[in-house]
């Protein structure tokens, strides 16, 4: 007969194996190719910036949870590590250390913990940190080391990103054709031989991460596909209207952190919609706002702002875009 106490609980009695922790570390693994490429491209600085950002994020999360919120800190669930890496991916490798620490504090403290920690923040913490730095330290945040072959020769010179120089050139009255001559080729852009923030440069490495995350079922395809294709479509429309003033769509997609944003930042669970239909709307919204900022705004790049703006729309999207109720009259039935 039964010798021990049986456990009784409501169904279900089995559970899938992916926990929050595993999902988060899955994302970290997906970011490894981009990190490796940034090390290849920017040299030892990339490791330095990334590890500094990650460590300060962990420390801030621990301190705030333990002493300010007075609860059991849970820093090893991986979310702070992701925030740290993403923040590092979004800054130039030449950034002074104190700016990185400030960015981490803003990202974790204001972006996440002030709302109650993981799961409660309306905005992507890494982007909150990044945008704060962009506004507070515009010079440091927009001078990128010219990409050399990182480990071989560290080039001290710094310059603007391609989108930045295009914008500047257009402002000076130069035509797109002449500007494009000096721009890198598509294959250089795809593999990542361009100036820019740490992690945003290599579309190839980021796509590897996307494939991994899709394979592991960490994210679904909806947000990245919707966002990238909408950027392609909207910038393509502008390009068709006036090719002398606007860069072609492929160029837009491969530059300025579109890949990084679409794959790692817009897909953040906490700050994206819950339903697949909502995700599509969210992705298209980001694409539209990005193109608008790039074409008509004063910033050459718009992905971060676009994602933050759409983050603010997520509650609205979730309120009005519901999944199809089984049996209700709708377009699925």
């Amino acid at each position: 007969m039964s010798t021990k106490f049986l456990t009784v609980s409501p169904s279900p009695h089995v559970h899938q194996e992916q926990s929050v922790k595993e999902l988060m570390y899955g994302v970290v693994i997906a970011m490894v190719p981009a990190l490796l490429f940034s090390i290849y491209n920017f040299g030892i600085e990339a490791i330095y910036v990334t590890s500094l950002a990650v460590i300060s994020c962990l420390i801030f999360e621990f301190t705030i949870a333990k002493y300010l919120l007075q609860r059991e800190p849970d820093v090893w669930n991986g979310s702070a590590i992701i925030t740290g890496i993403l923040l590092a991916f979004n800054v130039p490798s030449s950034l002074p250390w104190y700016i990185i620490v400030i960015g981490s504090l803003v990202a974790i403290g204001i972006g996440k913990m002030s709302f109650g920690g993981l799961g409660n923040n309306p905005f992507n913490p890494a982007l909150v940190g990044r945008v704060f730095l962009l506004i507070s330290f515009p010079v440091e945040m927009t001078s990128w080391p010219v990409p050399g072959n990182g480990f071989m020769e560290i080039d001290g010179a710094s310059g603007a990103t391609i989108l930045g120089s295009l914008k500047e050139g257009l402002g000076n009255g130069e035509s797109m054709e002449t500007l494009m001559v000096s721009a890198p080729s598509y294959s250089e852009l795809f593999w990542g031989f361009q100036g820019g923030s740490l992690g945003e440069i290599s579309a190839f490495a980021l796509l590897l991460g996307l494939v991994y995350m899709l394979y592991k079922k960490i994210i679904t395809w909806h947000i990245p596909v919707a966002m990238i294709s909408s950027i392609f479509v909207f910038s393509g429309l502008l390009w068709l209207i006036d090719p002398t003033q606007h860069a072609d769509p492929l160029f837009h997609v491969l530059t300025g952190g579109v890949m990084l944003g679409a794959i790692f930042m817009a897909t953040d669970y906490v700050t994206s919609p819950m339903t697949t239909k909502g995700m599509l709307v969210f992705g298209v919204g980001i694409g539209l706002i990005t193109v608008l900022i790039r074409a008509f705004g004063s910033y050459p790049e718009g992905v971060s702002f676009a994602i933050l703006i759409m983050n603010a729309f997520v509650p609205l999207i979730d309120k009005y875009i519901k999944p199809h109720r089984f049996g209700a009259k709708g377009f699925l039935s």
Partner: peptide, 8 residues
């Protein structure tokens, strides 16, 4: 006790 409750 005769069993262990493990639900919500």
């Amino acid at each position: 006790k005769t069993n262990i409750y493990d639900g919500a």
